[in-house]
Design a protein around this nucleic acid. Structure first.
Length: 504
RNA sequence: GCCCCCAUCGUCUAGAGGACCAGGACUCAAGCCUUUCAAGCUUGCUACAGGGGUUCGAAUCCCCUUGGGGGCACCA
């Protein structure tokens, strides 16, 4: 093979939101291009207008940009081999198909969809491999000419040579051999004149000088068509790299929404974005899904990943999506953020969760007391709000139900009420009203009362947060301020004493 | 049904004939610490799918079985 520049591409079809597996394909192609100092391009494969979804190009672009993948040529920025949208390249495909017809390597097929459908069904009924029977394969040139001239609808099919086997090379798996008994003359051009994927992809990959074709494993079976197409045109093969699919956690089928069980696990890239995964974490995680840089660590910077990436180290076997590992890695990235950055990235999520504007959330400066405490507690940005309902409620909105949340460990309700009373006094002493000061005061008091700090803090924790589990107490108090804390503890105290009376 | 691909701890994986009674990470479990929950620290559990070869020697090479996945459209 002659030396040439490494050029890879990501070629999604705009039929909806982009799947995590597709994003990984894009990432690997990008990684390889960047590793080699080559070019990465974006090409939109919209040859099927029936499945076209207008919003999806923008969505795909957003997802790529979110992950931090940039392209050197593409529909939005152009390039020397444009256009990069296949629906604008119809004539190119038609010309190439015509060339093959002239060279007797392809032919016009006038069979109707109905006939084809029936053929397939009868073959299946007989347990045969469904394939085209070649009815139009040897039509005379005259007949074809007259029928075309008459405006009869037809498709163009590639004439497949009758070999027994065809072999092509995949970087990850080595030689792949397919017997042609399973192959049929594939349609290249649909009756509407638009190319089918096989033709469009091969022609474009050649014209755009793609050196390495990275795509999903589901394309292995049709690999021979592409080989034969390259041969028919007399073009040099690209290097093929078929990436393994990502399976559902239970291993049953390709990672998908309907199969992920009770818990809603993200599948599409937009779902991961919405759940609050960080681009850096996803970049790191996805790079290591099916590839390892042969090291005993798994936290890598983008640059390290680019430097080390190698195609032949990619695993050939399909992996079950390891959601827990993604969670863990995302938390690692989350906790490595500066408090300010963490706050910035969390703000939109809080605004959405509590139905406030981002500006309002951004202005709640006292949140700074508690937000850093959440960096080790949360796996995604979407979970940050789970820890903060108390911060977005007024004292009156806090519900002490069940009332047990106001009872400290190893304390009864009378003692707990008493603790709340004491807290009220400590509140007034705290000056300034800061976590450190509060901690000092409460610790001393706990000692004086001969109580473990942990059990003494139970009642006020419940009173302040309305929950048994919360962020650290003193930080919460500092967020709310003295007056709000006093009000909550007062309320909690009265709830506790009245409930106690009823219980007694 | 036919064709193709794949197969190491529960999971993601390291391993390219001797350096492996199989290494790392996640998960899980226990202990310590502790302001609840986390985090942190320490320790621990668990794997070469099965059967045949090849070889002085196999997780590594070959074959079969089994299991899983993918494909068989005028979709990509």
């Amino acid at each position: 093979m002659t030396f040439r520049e490494v050029r890879t591409r990501f070629a999604p079809s705009p039929t909806g939101t982009i799947h995590l597996g597709s994003l990984r394909t894009a990432l690997f192609a990008w990684l390889w291009a960047r590793h080699c100092g080559g070019k990465f391009l974006l090409r939109i494969e919209d040859t099927d207008n029936k499945r076209f979804d207008p919003g999806s190009v923008a969505s795909i672009v957003n997802c790529l940009q979110w992950l931090g993948l940039d392209w050197d040529e593409g529909p939005d920025i152009g390039g020397p081999f444009g256009p990069y949208t296949q629906s604008e390249r119809g004539q190119i495909y038609r010309d190439h198909a015509e060339q093959l017809i002239t060279e007797h390597k392809a032919y016009c097929c006038f069979c109707s969809r109905e006939r084809l459908q029936q053929l397939r069904e009868s073959q299946k009924a007989r347990n045969e491999q469904p394939r085209y029977d070649g009815a139009c394969r040897d039509l005379s040139a005259e007949e074809v000419a007259t029928r075309r001239a008459a405006g009869e609808s037809y498709t163009v099919r590639l004439r497949i040579p009758s070999l027994e086997r065809i072999t092509f090379k995949d970087v990850i798996r080595g030689d792949i051999t397919v017997s042609t008994s399973t192959l049929q003359d594939p349609i290249l051009l649909k009756s509407d004149g638009m190319a089918v994927y096989h033709l469009a992809a091969v022609v474009d990959d050649h014209l755009m000088q793609i050196s390495h074709v990275l795509r999903g494993e589901e394309w292995i079976a049709t690999g021979p068509y592409h080989v034969m197409l390259y041969e028919a045109f007399g073009w040099e093969f690209p290097v093929w790299v078929h990436l393994p699919v990502i399976l559902n956690p239970d291993g049953k089928g390709k990672m998908s929404k309907r199969n992920t069980g009770k818990h809603l696990m993200p599948v599409n890239v937009e779902d991961f974005v919405a759940a609050g995964f960080l681009p850096d974490a996803m970049f790191n995680f996805l790079s290591l899904l099916g590839w390892t840089p042969n090291a005993t660590k798994d936290m890598f910077s983008r640059q390290e990943l680019i430097d080390r990436f190698e195609l032949d180290q990619i695993s050939p076997s399909a992996a079950k999506m390891p959601y827990e590992k993604l969670d863990w890695m995302n938390r690692e990235y989350l906790r490595s953020l500066s408090p300010q950055t963490f706050r910035d990235v969390a703000t939109p999520f809080l605004a959405q969760a509590f139905n406030r504007s981002e500006t309002v959330v951004a202005r709640m400066e006292s949140l700074n007391y508690v937000l850093p405490e959440l960096q080790t507690r949360v796996k995604t940005l979407g979970e940050v709000s789970d820890w903060l309902p108390w911060a977005f409620k007024s004292a009156a909105e806090i519900e002490y139900e069940p009332v047990e949340m106001l009872i400290g460990r190893k304390l009864d309700s009378t003692q707990s009420a008493k603790v709340l009373q004491t807290c009220l006094e400590l509140l007034e002493e705290a000056n300034p009203f800061e976590p450190e000061v509060l901690k000092d005061l409460f610790s001393k008091e706990a000692q004086a009362l001969n109580l473990k700090l942990g059990s003494m803090l139970g009642p006020p924790r419940g009173a302040i947060s309305g929950s048994k589990v919360s962020p650290p107490l003193f930080e919460m108090m500092a967020v709310l301020g003295k007056n709000e804390c006093r009000e909550r503890i007062l309320r909690a105290h009265s709830v506790l004493t009245s409930k106690s009376v009823t219980m007694a």
